[in-house]
Design a protein around this nucleic acid. Structure first.
Length: 264
DNA sequence: GCCCAGGGTGTTT
DNA sequence: AAACACCATGGG
C-alpha cells in the first residue's frame, strides 16, 4: 500500500494529543505501544512509511483501513471552518491504540498538559513496566505514594481505582466493545476518577469508537465560538474524527487566539 | 506571584 | 442543574 503525507502525517497525528509514548529525532519517529512484555516499538520516517504499511499491527494502529478522504469530504461540507481544519492537517488519523494503555493514559491526562502527561507516562513505564506500559495488575497493586512520586498528584488514587476495576472484572473490555456507546460510557464512568471526557477519549482512541466526541477545553472553545447551539450530530456518525481535526487546528494554528471568528 | 493544562469530585446555591 | 472550590504539578 502506498501512503502519501496527505493520507498519513506523522507530525500531525502523533503529537495531536492522542498518544503519549512517542519521540522524534532528526526526522525519525519512535512510537511505543502496548503493555510490558508485549510492548512494540516502531521507528519510521515520513519519507518511508513501509515500516507501517508492511506490519499489520502498525497498519491497524494508524487506522489504514478507514477511508479518511471520504470522511474529510463530508466534513468539509459542514462549514468553512471545518473545511479549513481538514485542509490544515489533512494527514491526521485516529490512532487505534492498546485499550488499557489508552484508558490509563487519559486518566493521567485530566487537568494536565500533554508534555507533562508524556513525562509521567514515561516514568510509569520505567517504574512498573520495564519500558512497556504498566500492566493492569501492577497498577492495581501500586502504592499511591509511589504514584505520587512519579508526579501523578491527585490522580494517584484514580489510577489505582481504574486498574482495580479492570483487574476485578468490573470493567470488561470485551463487554465494552460490544455494548451501546452510551452504556459503555456509563460503565467507564462508574470508576471514581473517570468522567465523561476521559471516557470519551478512551472509547475513541482505545476502543476505536469513532462516534465519541471528547469535549476538552479546546473543543468547548471551538463549539461555543463557531458551532453555537449545535452538537456533534452535525458531523455525522464519525464525529470523533472531525473532533480530532478541530482539536488540532484549534490548539496549533493560532486561529482562536483572538476570537473574531463567529461567522465560520 | 498568577494562570493554564485533552477534568473530576464534592459542595453549595 | 448550574456554579464553585479544590485537587498536584510544572511551564509560561
Amino acid at each position: 500500500m502506498q501512503l502519501t503525507q496527505k493520507e498519513l502525517s506523522l507530525k500531525d497525528t502523533l503529537p495531536s494529543g492522542q498518544c503519549f509514548r512517542f519521540s522524534e529525532d532528526n526526522g525519525t519517529w519512535t512510537v511505543k505501544s502496548g503493555v510490558a512484555e508485549n510492548c512494540r516499538t516502531l521507528r519510521v520516517r515520513q519519507e518511508d512509511l513501509s515500516p507501517i504499511t508492511d506490519d499489520p499491527y502498525w497498519s491497524e494502529f494508524f487506522d489504514l483501513e478507514t477511508d479518511y478522504e471520504s470522511l474529510k469530504k463530508d466534513f468539509s461540507k459542514v462549514s468553512p471552518l471545518m473545511a479549513q481544519a481538514c485542509a490544515y492537517a489533512p494527514g491526521i488519523r485516529i490512532l487505534n491504540q492498546d485499550t488499557w494503555e489508552a484508558l490509563c493514559g487519559f486518566v493521567v491526562s485530566q487537568n494536565n498538559n500533554i508534555k507533562r502527561i508524556m513525562g509521567i507516562v514515561e516514568r510509569m513505564c520505567s517504574f512498573y513496566g520495564n519500558g512497556g506500559f504498566p500492566s493492569v495488575k501492577s497498577l492495581a497493586n501500586a502504592k499511591e505514594d509511589d504514584l505520587r512520586s512519579l508526579g501523578l498528584g491527585f490522580r494517584a488514587p484514580y489510577i489505582v481505582n481504574t486498574a482495580r476495576a479492570v483487574y476485578d472484572g468490573l470493567i470488561d473490555f470485551e463487554v465494552l466493545k460490544n455494548v451501546d456507546i452510551d452504556e459503555a460510557r456509563g460503565m467507564l464512568m462508574t470508576v471514581k476518577g473517570i468522567g465523561p471526557k476521559v471516557a470519551d477519549c478512551a472509547l475513541l482512541f482505545g476502543f476505536h469508537r469513532l462516534d465519541c466526541f471528547p469535549m476538552d477545553v479546546w473543543m468547548k472553545r471551538v463549539m461555543a465560538t463557531c458551532f453555537a447551539g449545535q452538537d456533534k450530530s452535525i458531523f455525522g456518525p464519525c464525529a470523533g474524527v472531525a473532533q480530532q481535526y478541530l482539536f488540532h487546528f484549534a490548539r496549533t494554528s493560532g486561529y482562536f487566539d483572538e476570537p473574531d471568528c463567529k461567522e465560520n
